[in-house]
Design a protein around this nucleic acid. Structure first.
Lengths: 339, 339
DNA sequence: CAATATATTGGGAACGTTCCCATAATGGTT
DNA sequence: AACCATTATGGGAACGTTCCCAATATATTG
């Protein structure tokens, strides 16, 4: 049961550990016969290097943390996929922690990762300002931090990857207007994160431009999941608010609202059109399919991982911001049957 | 930037590393004054134990692997939540790998985890027989393996946690029949996994009992995701098969099929009733809400983690099988509006 | 043939910790 | 006063590697 070590090989072959090490590392200062003998014995005894020992030696853990508000919708999963694409080939382990949209848990998660000695952290924050000081401390203590999607205030010098929320939200509102909608509700994301503000800003700007803005239609939801969308829709109906379309911060919000409306016998999109930000397979796996801003989530993860690797290699390297392009895709939830 | 070590503390306080270690570990053989001085200095210099060194010392990595067919639906996420609940408080890290329903990738993932030196592995397999020999090898080399949901053949002596698939599938078919359905389609899971066989067995048994079984209605899908469900539904329609209800292996299959049917203008449940296995929030976040076998997924993760910890503590401990109870919940997709 | 270059190997420190063993100092007992 | 038990501390090996620095053996050069 005990693992074979270099020492075992050394004893088995009557060689020193140095020589074994050289053979295994393809060092040039070794006789090819010896090398072959060693490799053969390693094979035979099932030698596998002890990564823990190497980690100690090199002062790295070859692991990184991935902190997200939630892991139960495909959003984070798709980003994670991208992170894996980059990091697994490099031998990194990824440790995932969920904050449940709670800054206190986020803080605990970060500290836990620090205690795990991770080489770096990729994070989608859940509250822009609350943990600002922790981010700074962690970076100061030497663990690089890379943000994606929801990014912190500009005062923090970190690498980050995001999409142009303001523009894409604006374009989506233009689309709804071009579909003849005039009473557009916005189910807003948490006002403590920057891209919620950005998207709401785009919404407000375009509606104001068209002289259609009505502050009553800007809804602060209580979360970003299905349930929050459902509740928001219910309140709109219960309060007898007149509206003909919804633009939601996330696909989950949109779907929650859409399901509630349909349960009330309201036709989508005939009576209410629905659009949102997405990038997950949710947008095409609901009825009707959802018009959405398709964010390149996997690519987002790949970019974040690449930026993190740069920082891990050289902690003093300049921070970068990558802005990815997102595509608007028009589907049945705004266009109706003709699609 | 360099981390404070015990040696630094020793030098700072003119004490030996042994004494520092004792102070930090609350050893009884130490003067309380000394202990306080050490703790104070540790605080001041920001000492944090180096887990890598400890791992090397104790021959453990305090990390476990979590291998699942996919991570983009909430199924695995919910199980993972349970795993986290048990393992994080114990200081374990969880490393997640996705097999994409591909036994070859599953194999690679397992070997990768072994090279990471994980203390144990929790796995939901994607092909019952293909990797059998690898499971055996890994266990033989000393890494405990715990299975959940999809479990391997009985010849393998491992701990596992599952639900009673046959019974619950049977009950669900009884429900559909009691709703007046007689032409019940089964969207079957991959025939290479045992619980797909079990659920199909329950389906077949009850229908045969009621003299309603029609082999034409047993559909082998090409996967378990939304898309596979959609394709299966399309084929049924295209082939002009007559049916009045669907019982699906997973909620994703059911939802994919349901969406396609609705896009074709078919009413659910009036024309086609739909039911499936679930346990995720999908069942209540679609329109109409889905009648389903609600598997206790978080609990499944907790049980699997608990079993794994037992094996990690004592690799010779007896393997256990935990069968969890799943509840049938009847919703609009079979009952209709009256709910 | 001596001198030097080259090839191959071994010894042992280092990474940060724990823990066994020795040592020193103190206090109490006869 | 001599002894032993107790308390507090230090020294150093060990976990599995790598890699620097010898040490040896062989080959090459003038």
């Amino acid at each position: 049961m005990k693992r074979t070590t270099i020492k075992d090989l050394a004893q088995y072959l009557s060689l020193s550990t140095s020589t074994i090490s050289r053979a295994l590392l393809n060092d040039k200062n070794i006789h090819s016969d010896t090398k072959n003998r060693v490799l053969e014995a390693a094979q035979k005894l099932g030698y596998k290097p002890n990564v823990t020992a190497l980690n100690l030696k090199y002062g790295k853990t070859k692991s990184i943390g991935f902190v997200v508000p939630e892991m139960t919708t495909p959003f984070s999963s798709k980003v994670l996929q991208g992170v894996h694409n980059i990091l697994y080939p490099l031998g990194y382990k990824v440790i995932i922690l969920q904050s449940d949209e709670d800054p206190v848990r986020e803080r605990e998660n970060l500290l836990l990762l620090e205690s795990f000695n991770v080489d770096g952290i990729i994070i989608n924050l859940c509250h822009e300002t609350h943990n600002q000081s922790i981010y700074e401390e962690i970076i100061h203590r030497g663990t690089p931090l890379v943000f994606f999607d929801r990014i912190p205030q500009n005062t923090l010098d970190v690498s980050k990857v995001l999409v142009d929320d303001h523009i894409k939200a604006s374009l989506m509102i233009e689309h709804l207007i071009s579909c003849g909608r005039t009473k557009i509700v916005h189910l807003m994301g948490p006002s403590t994160v920057r891209n919620a503000i950005e998207r709401a800003g785009g919404y407000q700007r375009i509606l104001t431009k068209h002289n259609l803005y009505d502050s009553q239609l800007m809804i602060k939801t209580n979360g970003v999941g299905f349930e929050a969308g459902r509740i928001a829709a219910k309140q709109l109906i219960d309060n007898n608010v007149k509206f003909d379309s919804i633009f939601a911060f996330t696909d989950t919000l949109a779907i929650g609202a859409m399901n509630y409306l349909q349960e009330q016998g309201i036709k989508v999109p005939e009576e209410i059109a629905i659009a949102s930000f997405s990038g997950t397979e949710f947008s095409v796996n609901v009825f009707p399919q959802l018009t959405s801003v398709e964010q390149p989530l996997t690519q987002m993860g790949e970019s974040a991982a690449t930026l993190l690797i740069e920082k891990i290699k050289d902690n003093t390297s300049a921070s970068q911001t990558i802005i990815l392009d997102a595509k608007l895709v028009y589907r049945a939830s705004t266009l109706g049957k003709e699609v």
